[in-house]
Amino acid sequence: MPVITYRQALNDTLGEELARDPNVLLMGEEIGVFQGSYRVTEGLLAEFGPKRVVDTPIAEEGFVGVAIGAAMLGLRPVVEIMTINFILVAIDQIVNHASKIHYMFGGQVSVPLVIRTPSGGTGQLAATHSQSFENWFAYCPGLKVVAPATPYDAKGLLRAAIRDDDPVIFIESLALYDTKGEVPEDDDYVVPIGIAEVKRQGTDVTVVSYSRMTAVALQVAQRMEQEGISVEVVDLRSLRPLDRPTIIESVKKTNRAVVIAEDWYSYGVTAEIAATIQEEAFDYLDAPVQRVAGLEVPLPYAKELSAASKPNANSLIYAIRQVLRGTKRLR
């Protein structure tokens, strides 16, 4: 199977979907002439022209609203928001309109819209450019929220999102764009929205993660195997709907759980998962669920402070050790 980057998987999928369906169009800042702030849309303007690949002014509230309205008439806009930080300018249109239109109007009209955006932080991007807000959207009924961790899932979920008749928030990650993985050619597979995947089988502890933190979890799982600790990694892939059965099934098997996400600790994604586990698998737990998340500060710019404020492999290893304390695995 060919090995390609996460970025390439997205780029290929956008191109294929543009070719497949004339109602699909791309919209966003710097996606055409500039070829994408993070080069996800590279080459697409040249291939499909300005009718299908639309450069917008810096007007997120406006063009997201335009995309919603256009979707109501049957277009299938795929909007890029440069990073999730800037989506706040458009959040009213997404939460008050896109998420509600199908339900509130009795199912008469749908909003087949995708909003792609990278979330999280790398490299000292500082307080306003490093945030994770997927939980804000996952909180909102009527939206679907997906966050692939691998090129394979990126492709399959983007296809599913574009072909879906509801608004989908598609979460990417700057730190994942250059990561590589196998993606089949000439295979029109989709990854279903709302279904998690056990990315690695294990018996001692379940780590629940998504997006970049799944990559971290898989590395950690490999490292811990050398110490004789068997880590199962559940990659959520979708945050809404949340695949509770897959999480619970895994925890019932391992009896221990660590949840990791890059967003802030309080009221974050990890809280939802931990609550779910204690509700549905309390009797199976041998230790309290551990949570690993971002420290609760506006991310400082200074290099060391910045790095220390985001969860990493060390913080996950620590949490895994905590949850295993007192077992034969860990004295």
Binding site: Q124, A126, A127, T128, H129, P298, P300, Y301, A302, L305
Partner: peptide
């Protein structure tokens, strides 16, 4: 000027 918390943009 911002105690290293802000960076170039802040």
């Amino acid at each position: 000027v911002s105690g290293g918390r802000g960076g170039s943009m802040h």
